[in-house]
Simulated scan of single mutants.
Amino acid sequence: MAKRCAVCGKGPQFGHNVSKAGNRTKRRFEPNLQAVRVALPQGGTRRMRVCTRCIKAGKVAKAA
């Protein structure tokens, strides 16, 4: 499954691990995704993978 937020579309970013000697190896920065039961505007609930930023900003209404 893709590591993408269902709300904002945030995905992995790429960078380097840098050692003391300055050697660089590739690495990925993964978004902090959580499986959350979301209350849909049309009614009902659905399980979605949402980043913590969207949860904290209130872009998602959690199902009770």
Rank of each mutant, 00 (worst) to 15 (best):
A6W: 11
N32R: 12
H16K: 04
G44A: 02
F29N: 13
Q34F: 07
K59W: 01
K3R: 04
M48I: 01
P12S: 02
G58T: 14
V60C: 01
K10L: 13
F29R: 02
A35E: 13
R28T: 15
R53Q: 15
K10G: 12
A57R: 13
R47G: 00
C51Y: 03
K26T: 10
K62Q: 07
V36P: 07
G11R: 01
G9K: 02
A2L: 12
V36C: 10
I55P: 10
A61G: 04
K26W: 06
K56C: 06
L33V: 02
R4I: 14
G58Q: 11
A64W: 03
A39P: 06
I55N: 06
T45V: 08
A21E: 10
A21M: 09
R28G: 12
G22R: 05
Q13C: 09
C51V: 07
A6M: 07
T52V: 15
C5Y: 05
E30W: 09
G58I: 12
N23Q: 12
E30F: 14
E30D: 12
A35H: 09
N17R: 09
H16R: 03
P41F: 00
Q42C: 00
A63P: 08
A61Q: 14
Q13G: 13
C5E: 04
S19A: 13
R4F: 13
G11P: 00
R27W: 02
K56S: 13
K3E: 12
Q34Y: 04
G44L: 06
A35R: 10
R4P: 04
F14G: 05
I55D: 04
A39Q: 15
R24D: 12
A57Q: 14
G22N: 08
R27G: 11
L33G: 00
A39N: 09
A64S: 07
G15V: 05
L40Q: 15
H16P: 06
N23A: 13
G22Q: 12
R4S: 11
V18D: 01
K26E: 14
I55K: 03
K59V: 04
Q42P: 00
R24C: 11
P41R: 00
M48A: 03
A6Y: 11
G43W: 10
N23V: 15
Q42A: 00
R49L: 15
K20C: 10
A6I: 08
K10T: 14
T45N: 09
P31G: 05
C51G: 03
K62N: 01
V18A: 03
V36K: 14
K10S: 09
T52R: 07
K59S: 08
M1W: 13
L40W: 15
K62R: 10
Q13D: 14
R47P: 00
V36G: 07
N17H: 08
C51A: 06
Q13V: 15
T25E: 00
C8H: 08
R24K: 13
K59Y: 01
R47S: 08
V7E: 14
C54P: 11
K20I: 14
H16F: 07
K20S: 11
V60G: 03
H16N: 13
C8V: 12
Q34S: 09
A35I: 12
C54H: 02
I55Y: 05
N32K: 10
K3C: 04
R28L: 15
C51F: 02
A6K: 06
T25W: 00
N32G: 07
C8G: 07
R49V: 09
T52E: 07
P31M: 11
R28C: 14
T25I: 08
